[in-house]
Amino acid sequence: MDRTLSLKNSFSGKNTSQGNGKGETEEFPKQRGKQPDNRPGFPESSPLSKSIDDRLGTCLWMTIDELMTREIVKVYENTSIEEILSLYGKYPYHILPVVNDKNELVGIIDLDIILEILLLCLMPREKHTLTTAIRSLGATAKEIMITHPITISLDATLKNASDLMIKYRLDRICVIEDGKLVGIISKRNLIEEICKRRKEKLKEEID
């Protein structure tokens, strides 16, 4: 219970500090349609009533299914590095899941890998390892991806996801169902959902 409470606090803290909501949907532009566009700031010192706490409490048991981003950009095992680079140029995403022909998640590519490949000669010496060297020679997604991505299942709860994210400083996790990739859940997904619920609740109370 301790953890739940502290989570709630951190959420409400972030909320007021980003009151005007600038750039909050930048990361997942495809979601913009679903989100209400106009988000008025919250009153600076809105006292959290007991009922809001309850409301956020139920939020913790929502499943990943209701929270995650479904429309994601993914690549295949034989996608070339050039294509991957152009995808990174086009979208603001941090990770690209790699799937095989059966849509099973086999790996992920993240910004660190891309940076390592592009700036190999500038990397600090301790980064001159066999793995980075072999990665830099790779030509396809399969050869550069991280082959053991952390995943979360579709019916896991928001609490499961937030536990993982906070304990291991993960920002996004691939969601799988029977080994097949179905979406990505990010910290932002969680925060947006909780903010949305708070706002609804506040509106109800004002009415």
């Binding site: 190999l120 000669c121 010496r125 001159h128 390892t129 066999l130 060297a133």
Partner: peptide, 16 residues
């Protein structure tokens, strides 16, 4: 242990 050579190969762009 090739790590010490890796640096050289990378510097001279000879890894590939």
């Amino acid at each position: 242990s090739i790590t010490v050579v890796l640096g050289t190969l990378i510097d001279l762009n000879y890894l590939s």
